[in-house]
Computed example of a mutant assay.
Amino acid sequence: MALDMQYKIPVARTIADLRETVSAWRKENLRVGFVPTMGALHEGHLSLVDLAGADTDRVVVSIFVNPTQFAPGEDFEAYPRTEAADAEKLSSRAHLIFAPSAAEMYSPDFSTSVHVMGVTEDLDGAARPTHFAGVATVVTKLLLAVLPDKAVFGEKDYQQLLTIKRMVRDLNIPVEIIGGPTHREEDGLARSSRNAYLSAGERQSAGKLNVILRETAHAVAKGAPIAAATEAGITAIKEAGFQSVDYLEVRNAETLEPFASGKPDGPARILVAARIGKTRLIDNMPVE
């Protein structure tokens, strides 16, 4: 086994080294938690790491900027890569980093893709048509490489969380999927690695997104028709300084299907994706 020991926490660069380490833990009857990330870690990520370690003995965190979930023209090359800083943050909270190269994850003749139907086909799936196939494929590979007892994903990426839950169920992958609550900054903006792209003025405007989302959810909960409430919400988001809104929708919280009656008749979630400057922000919260 050839773990990279340059940081305070060991790093596995290959699937073989990852599996050898986890296998040794298994021989000691240790439970394993897993948090997949693309790095540039913030307090939101670290809250997921803590959740993964709450009832497990060892925690693996992957750091891999996955090329297959970025469409042409998206920010793959610009996406922040801060491995040394990430390792320092994880040194007291996790036990192993898995940081493979793209070549380790995808051979030159790689030809397999995982597609999850239904839950991926609208909202972010409509705005980014290739995104969820890339996510489902890499998460399948990561789960099969680690084979953890549980894996934790943030609720901020709510559609992604539902996609992974459906995929794990359908493919009978033996892992418990846990959703971690969205971690927010002081003004309520959902924490995201992409927040670093915002200028000072954009950051001030971005802080209004969660407020508008909450007000729209409250209006729907009080009986306002979904279409009227979301239309008013879109107007408010643009007036706050956002250039465009990909979607602002109230959907069934379990299936992401729209409510045919125009009002919630089951558990509901409000979801938004909006663009400010060069940055695309997403958020969601329950309609209660």
Rank of each mutant, 00 (worst) to 15 (best):
A71S: 14
A71N: 09
A71D: 14
P72Y: 02
P72L: 08
P72K: 10
G73M: 09
G73W: 04
G73F: 01
G73R: 06
E74F: 03
E74V: 04
D75Y: 11
D75Q: 10
F76A: 00
F76S: 00
E77M: 09
E77K: 14
A78S: 15
A78E: 15
A78N: 13
A78D: 14
Y79F: 05
Y79L: 05
Y79Q: 02
P80V: 03
R81E: 05
R81D: 07
R81H: 10
R81L: 05
T82P: 00
E83T: 10
E83K: 06
E83R: 07
A84Y: 12
A84I: 09
A84L: 11
A85Q: 15
A85V: 13
D86F: 09
D86E: 12
D86Q: 11
A87N: 10
A87R: 09
K89R: 15
K89L: 14
K89D: 03
L90D: 03
L90T: 02
L90V: 07
L90G: 05
S91P: 01
S91T: 02
S91Q: 01
S92T: 14
S92E: 12
R93Y: 09
R93W: 09
R93A: 09
R93P: 06
R93T: 07
R93M: 06
A94I: 10
L96E: 05
L96Q: 07
I97D: 01
I97S: 02
F98K: 07
A99K: 12
A99D: 09
P100I: 07
S101L: 08
S101C: 06
S101F: 10
S101A: 14
S101W: 12
A102D: 07
A102H: 02
A102V: 15
A102S: 08
A102Y: 02
A103P: 00
A103L: 13
A103T: 04
E104G: 01
E104T: 09
E104C: 04
E104N: 10
E104P: 02
M105T: 04
M105V: 11
M105I: 12
Y106E: 11
Y106R: 11
Y106M: 12
Y106H: 06
Y106N: 12
S107F: 12
S107G: 14
S107D: 08
S107N: 03
P108M: 13
D109G: 00
D109F: 02
F110E: 14
F110G: 00
F110C: 03
F110D: 10
F110I: 03
S111H: 13
T112Y: 11
T112R: 07
T112G: 05
S113L: 12
S113F: 13
S113P: 00
V114K: 02
V114R: 04
V114N: 05
H115R: 15
V116W: 08
V116P: 00
V116L: 08
M117W: 04
M117P: 00
M117E: 08
M117A: 14
G118T: 02
G118F: 01
G118Y: 01
G118R: 07
G118E: 04
G118M: 02
G118L: 01
V119Q: 03
T120K: 01
T120D: 01
E121C: 00
E121N: 03
D122W: 08
D122V: 06
D122Q: 15
L123V: 12
L123H: 06
L123I: 07
L123C: 03
D124P: 00
D124A: 13
D124V: 04
D124M: 08
D124H: 11
G125P: 01
G125H: 10
G125R: 11
A126T: 15
A126D: 10
A126E: 15
